[in-house]
Design a protein around this nucleic acid. Structure first.
Lengths: 150, 150
DNA sequence: TGTTATTTAATCGCGCACGATATAAACTTG
DNA sequence: CAAGTTTATATCGTGCGCGATTAAATAACA
């Protein structure tokens, strides 16, 4: 009633960016205790999922899928390497790129991480349809936001 | 066809956490160049918005609204203080708490930041109804995720 | 061919974000 | 009022996340 269209816009925008921001932190808080048992952080877990889906990727390929820069990934991957989960080798066919492969230990971890997604999904309290719609909306949002920059 | 209900669940969950994660980064990327002109980072901007709405808050109060710990806010607020945007003073009525107040410069900045929200909203490419629904869903999601921990 | 331009990672500095811990003020009990 | 507890902020260490820069390898082309 008291809102002008402009106030409405400003409010929505403020809370949209913030609702994404704080929901991201909330996810982190839920994942953290579960992943601690696996010796992974939340971003490390996401990288491992990408590798479980598609092993032996270049840093560049992982970066494109995760929307992360090499300045973020290089140290993260070195930590995964130090924990014995992945190996980092220069590609013989193109020495500029580094290929990331799962070690046996890294492949093993997949089994131990098997029930994490379901636990998190239950923590969201969402039904499948709402979750699907949220995923669709957020991916479209991200692509719009990123698209405007390129 | 090939998806069992379980696969379905796992996929949705994986992408829900990731879609929030990557949308958060995308927002950051859109805000960054706009806020650079104001000398603010994205989290600093959110704190300033909280103060523009309600001046002279305690660190604790800001932390509750932002879902951030004092270990995050203290250095952030010191940077805002160093930039002359806020003042930090112990509350005489309770010397444990620190009250954060906007300086004149901090109040001035509000005008310069006035058109940021609309620019960002336009970058989202969303209509008001979709944005409102997203905000509602994400806040509910965050509260569910956080609620399970307490 | 040799020179230039592009691509790919790595490095560095800064600013979050949080858990664990510390410290000091305020409250609670006996 | 003294001793122990709870509260509010600060400090420290670790790990992202990114822009700017660097270095090395490859591609492009005159």
């Amino acid at each position: 009633m008291s809102d002008t269209p402009k106030d409405d816009l400003l409010d929505i925008d403020k809370f949209l960016c913030f609702s994404v921001y704080s929901a991201g932190h909330a996810f982190n808080r839920v994942y953290k205790p579960m992943l601690e048992a696996l010796g992974l952080t939340y971003p490390q877990y996401l990288v491992m999922v990408a590798l479980w889906q598609d092993d032996n990727q270049s840093v560049r390929s992982i970066g494109e899928k995760m929307y992360l820069e090499s300045s973020t990934l290089t140290p993260l991957l070195k930590r995964l390497e130090a924990n014995g989960l992945v190996s980092r080798k220069r590609d013989p066919k193109d020495e500029r790129s580094v290929r990331i492969s799962l070690t046996d230990k890294g492949k093993e971890l997949r089994k131990q991480a098997e029930d994490v997604p379901l636990c998190v999904f239950e923590a969201t309290g969402l039904d499948i349809e709402t979750a699907k719609r949220l995923v669709r909306d957020l991916r479209a949002l991200r692509d719009r936001l990123d698209g405007g920059l390129s």
